[in-house]
Every structure is written in structure tokens, then in C-alpha cells.
Design a binder for these strands. Structure first.
Lengths: 153, 153
DNA sequence: GTATATGCAAACTGTTTGCATTTAC
DNA sequence: GTAAATGCAAACAGTTTGCATATAC
């Protein structure tokens, strides 16, 4: 799951926008590319410091933000600790609610449809079989434009 | 999407575990129940303080954690700001990678299968049609036990 | 040479914790 | 009366920012 072109692409963008390819950025990109473990900023920092102990954590954050703004990396959140959480009441019937997040107005819309549940069940089975693991839960987060924002555009 | 029984259920559990139903807890539960906006702890705090300005933020956190531990509320994370992020390289072909999160060893396993993509496509269409919105992206996070942890148990 | 990045320390946000006081049972 | 919950302040983790210094172009 590595993309040998990442550093090159970034260098191009950098050039196009009057930015500069520094040793730190190159290092961070290398580490990012070499890693398939979804590192957090801190983990990436620790890895990169093995090569350059003088690297600063804020440089890592600045670089990651820069990369994210330009679509080179995408943030994911898996762990429930230390995260900015939203709390929903849990459904008494144990049924599942999934979410749609409008990227324009930030609205969150819940949905749950039997057909969706059925399809998800197939996916869960598929993945469980393929990887030999046990799937207990499936969280689906769709994103796009909600009805209101679609109407406005 | 409200469950009138929430406060009652919590009271029962509380009783069963030697806990106490306080005015603060009742207030937090009421606010949680009345709200369909997926409030964060801070938002919930702000809402609840309208009824009881002496309510403390740490009480809100403690109550939410208590509720979460007992399965009464479930945390969700939607916003990319202020969250504990994991960074992945974005795939150049725009293809999709989904994730499996082992709740025991915290390992994250990527997967992407054409069948899954196909099923997700159906879900996206279904939801888009049902709600009249535009779905640009679908993030699927499965969780359970990974192969290693299954083997160990 | 100049604009851009860096390192460092200090600030900031969201969350947790220790402890004395209050309160539900 | 006693164990459990609260309020408060202080600590904590992850992230951002201001500023002087260094460096890519």
C-alpha cells in the first residue's frame, strides 16, 4: 500500500506554490510512505526521529496539515480515546444506525434501512471469510451534500 | 429518535449497581434524550447549564463515561478538527480503502474488495434516493477481533 | 537576498483526576 | 451514617501558534 510517487507529486505541488522541499518534509514523506500502520502524528514523529533526532513535533504537525489541505493524506479516526466525541443514545433494540455527514453544513443525518443492513451483512461475511477474522460491528459513515445544501447549489 | 425509557433504564441499572440518581444525572439524561443533534460533551454541558447553571463540566464527562461504559450512549466521531487522527496516504487512483479495527489489540487492517465496493455502491444509491441527498463518499469501519486475537481466544 | 520552514517554548482545547464537600440512599 | 457523586482546581494529552533563527530557492 505504498505510492512511490508521493514525494514527487508533493515536490511538484511545492514548486507550483512557491514552497520548498526541505529535509524534514522529505523525511516525513518517506516515513509516511514506508509505513502501512496508519500512524498518528506522534507515531510518525517517533519513527522519523530515528533518522533525524532533531526533528520537531510541530514540524510534523505543520507538514501533515499541509499535506491534508492539499489532499495528500487523509485523516482517519479509529480509537475512542482522546477523541472529540459525539454522543448518541444507543437504540434499545440493538439495531444499527448509520450516519450521513454533510461536508458543507456539517449536519449529521441518521439512517437505517433494512436493505442497507442486508447489504452490510453481506460485506461483513465477505470480509470475515477473506481475512479469517470476526466482525462484530459495522459503522458506515457516508458523506456528501445533504438535501438542503444540494438545493442551494 | 428519542427513547423515553432511557432515564428509567439508567435508574434501574443505577439501583442494581449501588449507584445514585442525582439531579445532575437526570438533567444530563433529559438533555441527551431531548437532543437529536449528536451533541459533544461541551454542547451537552451548555444545554444542561441552561437549566442548572451550577452544573460542572467534569460531572458531564463523568456521567457520559459512566453511560458509555454501560452501553447507554455510544461515541461517534465525525469532525476532523481537534481529533486524534491517523494519517493514511491517499490513493492516487481515488479508489477506496476501508478499515477493520480490532477492538482487542487495536490493530487496523485495510481492505478493499470489488464485491464490497459494489455493495457499497448499492447502499449509496439507496440512501441518496431515499433522502434526496448527494453521497460523495462512503467510509466503512468494521470492528471485531482480528485473526490473531481470534486464534488466541 | 528574500520568502519560506524550522525549532523552541508557550498557549490552547478537550478530557481526566485528586481531594474536600455535599448528598442520595 | 456511609458510600457515592459533585464542584473545583490542577493536571494531562494532543495540537497549534508567535517569534527569532536557519535555509531553499
Amino acid at each position: 500500500m505504498t505510492f512511490p510517487l508521493l514525494t514527487d507529486q508533493v515536490t511538484q505541488t511545492l514548486r507550483a506554490q512557491g514552497g520548498r522541499m526541505t529535509a524534514q518534509r522529505r523525511l516525513i514523506l518517506d516515513v509516511l510512505q514506508a509505513s502501512d500502520s496508519h500512524p498518528t502524528a506522534e507515531e510518525l514523529y517517533a519513527l522519523a526521529r530515528q533518522s533525524d533526532p532533531s526533528l520537531n513535533l510541530s514540524t510534523v504537525y505543520r507538514t501533515l496539515n499541509w499535506l491534508e489541505e492539499r489532499g495528500f493524506v487523509s485523516p482517519r479516526r479509529f480509537d475512542d480515546n482522546h477523541a472529540h466525541k459525539h454522543f448518541d443514545p444507543v437504540q434499545p433494540d440493538g439495531g444499527h444506525v448509520h450516519h450521513f455527514h454533510c461536508r458543507k453544513c456539517d449536519r449529521v443525518i441518521e439512517f437505517s434501512a433494512p436493505q442497507v443492513e442486508l447489504l452490510l451483512e453481506q460485506i461483513r461475511g465477505e470480509i470475515a471469510r477473506q481475512h479469517g477474522l470476526r466482525v462484530d460491528d459495522a459503522a458506515l459513515v457516508l458523506s456528501g451534500l445533504c438535501m438542503d445544501c444540494v438545493a442551494k447549489s
